[in-house]
Write a protein that binds this DNA or RNA. Structure first.
Length: 425
RNA sequence: GUGGAUGUAGCUCAGGCUGGUAGAGCGCCGGACUGUGGCUCCGGAAGUCGCGGGUUCAAAUCCCGUCAUCCACCCCA
């Protein structure tokens, strides 16, 4: 046997129904909020992520699946969607053709990490981005959409954390204050933090090493160093969240691991997911479009992990595998031919009809019908054939009756309509 | 990349310490019911004991290596 590649997995029947529920719910919601679907390639030029996601991030430094193709091009399997959408936005001048460039996409992402529950090397994200809107009300809408998604999926025990990481105007002053406040304590921090103090001091807040915590707790907060514009923006976002009635808390340690974020950042965390408890995260990236060679346009968005959303789904969520409207059972070669014709007629009429290919005993055909959950079994044997009838057995009540062959399809259709009506009541 | 736990039938797991060549439940197939499911009873098929090497007369069991999964770190969705 040749097993699946480490960190990848098959999503099997029984699970795919939950995936379809998550994806379907998300699509409906995104479109309700005015987003349009876009699909971008899974492979991109390596430099898109080096410049976009950021050279100092762990993603770029050690987690990318990169290779050189036969033409000598440096190619990367996308580790996240945002840079690709920014590229597409710029490449196709989407701001010209769309009233408001509000885009969503979904699909596989790739990161070379040590696999764990809720963390795979090929994983899947739902992703939403809005371009060109500076007004803080779009931040509120995007966060509302994120929250609405989690709510629509019925996921419990979630919390929303938000923060503002400032902009190029106020970031330098904050970074200076941070390094100053750190002072000689830098020496006492873990290796990662000492490195971060040099490359990206903001990310020290991500540290979870217990010994570092007392020092980090004493550090200044981004929100206390925002410039006037960022301050006003953040206050407006918070006011909007109050209007929407979305509960949240400000986490001054929410700085996120991607370099491009400015101003608003947010995350949705779910309990009972173990260590990989971030189901959704995002924020504003006002310099990214320009950074990637586009016009000076702002942006904001979020990504949600489909695996994690599926994991966080309520256990009792009803999943409905496709159920046949009828099962056709045949006895003998003559009847078998007529059974195929009946199967054809049922299917031409748009009904879900199943059959036992191997022509086994009636008993085993009944058993199969039962396993498939068919409410009706249409039995065709020599007797029925001679009389131009089929025997219709209702599985739920174990009752059966002869029906003229030419009325069988209409009967199955009527029964299905009645079941549907009962189900929606 | 670091630390720990675990890999035995399709699934969930026993056996492993105290080596003697593999078991249960569920599922699957068949029979009791010569043309009728779900319950019951009876029978059957199915396993390179993750993989490779070593020790031994003999290894699922002991030793080494390796791969995978899970948990935590890390990172993030």
């Amino acid at each position: 046997m040749i097993p699946a590649v480490r960190g990848t997995r098959d999503i099997l029947p029984g699970e795919t129904e939950r995936w379809a529920f998550v994806e379907g719910t998300a699509r409906r919601l995104f479109e309700q909020y005015g987003y349009f679907e876009i699909r971008t390639p899974i492979i991109e030029r390596e430099e898109l992520f080096a410049k976009g996601t950021g050279e100092t991030t762990d993603i770029v430094q050690k987690e990318m699946y990169s290779f050189i193709d036969k033409g000598g091009e440096r190619i990367t399997l996308r580790p996240e969607a945002t840079p690709s959408l920014v590229r597409a936005f710029v490449e196709h001048a989407l701001e010209q053709s769309m009233a408001v460039p509000k885009l969503y996409t979904l699909g596989p992402m790739f990161r070379y990490e040590r696999p764990q529950k809720g963390r795979y090397r090929q994983f899947h994200q739902l992703d939403v981005e809005v371009f060109g809107v500076k007004d803080p009300s779009v931040d509120g809408e995007v966060i509302d959409l994120a929250w609405a998604l989690v709510r629509a999926l019925g996921i419990e025990h979630v919390e929303l954390a938000i923060n503002s990481v400032g902009c190029p105007e106020c970031r330098p002053a904050f970074t200076r204050a941070l390094v100053e406040a750190l002072g000689r304590d830098v020496e006492k921090l873990c290796g990662d933090c000492r490195r971060r103090a040099e490359t990206n001091p903001l990310r020290i807040f991500d540290c979870k090493v217990p010994a570092d915590q007392p020092i980090i707790d004493r550090l200044p907060h981004t929100v206390d160093y925002l410039c006037d514009a960022c301050r006003v923006h953040f206050d407006a976002v918070r006011a909007d969240l109050d209007v929407y009635g979305i509960p949240y808390h400000v986490s001054h340690r929410l700085v996120r691991g991607l370099d491009y974020y400015t101003r608003t950042t947010f995350e949705v965390l779910a309990g009972h997911l173990g260590a990989q408890n971030a189901v959704l995260g995002g924020g504003r990236y006002d310099g990214l479009v320009r950074q990637l060679g586009g016009p000076d346009r702002v942006g904001i968005g979020f990504a949600a992990g489909i695996e994690r959303l599926v994991l966080a789904l309520p256990a009792e969520l009803p999943v409905a595998p496709p159920v046949p409207d009828a099962f056709v059972a045949a006895l003998g070669d003559q009847a078998r031919r007529e059974a195929l014709a009946l199967l054809r007629d049922l299917r031409r009429a748009g009904l879900n009809a199943q059959f036992d290919y191997e022509g086994r005993t009636l008993k085993s055909q009944m058993k199969r019908a039962d396993r498939l959950g068919a409410p009706l079994v249409l039995i065709l044997g020599e007797d029925e054939l001679a009389r131009g009838q089929v025997t219709v057995k209702r599985m739920a009540t174990s009752t059966q009756e002869p029906v003229p062959r030419h009325e069988a399809v209409a009967l199955v259709a009527r029964e299905r309509a009645a079941r549907r009506a009962a189900a929606t009541r």
